Simulated assay, not measured.
Amino acid sequence: MEKQGGATCSADCNGGVLNKPNPSPSKFPLTFWEMAAASGVVLSFVLGLVGVYLTMPESDYSFLKLPRSLEDLQILRDHLESYTSDYTIQVLIGYCTVYIFMQTFMIPGTVFMSLLAGALFGVFKGVALVVLNATAGASSCYFLSKLIGRPLLSSLWPDKLVFFQEQVAKRRTRLLNYMLFLRVTPTLPNTFINVASPIVDVPYHIFFLATFIGLIPAAYVTVRAGIALGELRSVGDLYDFHSIATLFLIGVVSVTPTLISKNNS
């Protein structure tokens, strides 16, 4: 029973949707154990990166930093090219650890990591590497959000979260098609989808399949551009009209079965 002055439902109260509690600005949204779990995940990534660093040859690694521009990325590419052939395992482990870490904690810049995969490993190996790492990072984010995501999302994006939950509830019978559509097209940010999916009860097997399959087209576009990294002037050059139109066409095809089933019912 709903109490006046207490928590209020943000949508249909009988559908198990999210409740918006009265604001308490002084209260941190995570408990001690939730913070401890998140810190443990961060520590495991840090230890992995330290292990990779210790096994690399002695050299000046001042160039090793997360790229924030195409210039940073070109400098990183120029230095790593000389290591990739002789220290392939270390470079791969370091690349995968950084990529998955960035995806898990929603750190911007994975587009530069995808470009780097194309520059270092070529199209086919690069696409496979990006898709596998993006799926692993999204899965890591999914399970971490399942543990600590609800209070954070409810305080940061309550309206967007309610909207996403309503859309998922409407398309429950064809949820894979809808999730594929979201992955292929820029309708919702991928980072938001990763964090919100467990909160709105998207099953993991559907989340995994939609992520693994749906990220392939965009990964191909980005990795292919990484081969001609020196010709790029800005990140905006990655997605021209032809590329965006192709991605939307793939998204429309993926969501068509859902639209047909709704019209027939």
Rank of each mutant, 00 (worst) to 15 (best):
residue 113 M to Q: 11
residue 202 V to A: 02
residue 129 L to T: 15
residue 183 R to M: 14
residue 167 Q to Y: 01
residue 25 P to S: 07
residue 171 R to K: 06
residue 202 V to W: 02
residue 215 L to P: 00
residue 40 G to M: 01
residue 197 S to N: 10
residue 243 S to G: 01
residue 11 A to F: 12
residue 26 S to R: 09
residue 17 V to N: 13
residue 160 K to V: 00
residue 107 I to W: 08
residue 139 S to F: 05
residue 35 M to H: 00
residue 202 V to Y: 01
residue 107 I to F: 10
residue 66 L to A: 02
residue 174 R to T: 12
residue 213 I to K: 10
residue 15 G to A: 14
residue 129 L to H: 13
residue 236 G to E: 12
residue 34 E to F: 03
residue 190 N to V: 03
residue 176 L to M: 10
residue 117 A to D: 03
residue 1 M to Q: 09
residue 204 Y to D: 03
residue 194 N to H: 05
residue 263 N to Q: 14
residue 255 V to P: 08
residue 91 V to K: 03
residue 256 T to N: 02
residue 128 A to C: 13
residue 7 A to E: 14
residue 196 A to L: 07
residue 247 L to G: 11
residue 234 S to W: 04
residue 233 R to T: 14
residue 236 G to Q: 10
residue 254 S to C: 15
residue 92 L to Y: 12
residue 27 K to Y: 00
residue 117 A to V: 02
residue 210 A to K: 03
residue 71 E to W: 01
residue 34 E to P: 05
residue 69 S to V: 13
residue 150 R to V: 08
residue 153 L to M: 14
residue 127 V to W: 01
residue 22 N to Y: 05
residue 5 G to H: 05
residue 128 A to Q: 08
residue 21 P to I: 02
residue 74 Q to H: 01
residue 5 G to R: 07
residue 166 E to G: 06
residue 173 T to D: 15
residue 165 Q to R: 06
residue 207 F to D: 02
residue 225 A to V: 02
residue 191 T to Y: 07
residue 217 P to A: 10
residue 166 E to I: 08
residue 241 F to N: 04
residue 82 S to W: 05
residue 144 L to G: 09
residue 244 I to A: 14
residue 64 L to V: 15
residue 222 T to N: 15
residue 59 S to P: 00
residue 109 G to L: 06
residue 36 A to Q: 09
residue 124 F to M: 08
residue 216 I to K: 03
residue 182 L to D: 04
residue 244 I to W: 13
residue 219 A to I: 10
residue 15 G to N: 12
residue 170 K to T: 07
residue 146 K to F: 07
residue 64 L to K: 08
residue 229 L to P: 12
residue 66 L to Y: 00
residue 81 E to H: 12
residue 15 G to E: 13
residue 98 V to K: 00
residue 251 G to I: 00
residue 91 V to D: 00
residue 262 K to F: 03
residue 229 L to S: 13
residue 95 Y to K: 04
residue 166 E to F: 00
residue 71 E to F: 06
residue 47 L to Y: 07
residue 61 Y to H: 01
residue 96 C to K: 00
residue 115 L to F: 13
residue 245 A to C: 14
residue 56 M to T: 03
residue 252 V to I: 15
residue 118 G to E: 04
residue 61 Y to R: 02
residue 80 L to Y: 10
residue 105 F to W: 06
residue 263 N to S: 13
residue 133 N to A: 14
residue 47 L to H: 02
residue 25 P to T: 03
residue 126 G to I: 03
residue 16 G to K: 04
residue 238 L to V: 07
residue 214 G to V: 11
residue 187 T to Q: 12
residue 103 Q to F: 11
residue 211 T to E: 06
residue 181 F to C: 12
residue 186 P to C: 05
residue 112 F to C: 02
residue 69 S to I: 11
residue 13 C to W: 11
residue 57 P to G: 10
residue 32 F to E: 14
residue 41 V to M: 13
residue 15 G to T: 07
residue 100 I to Q: 01
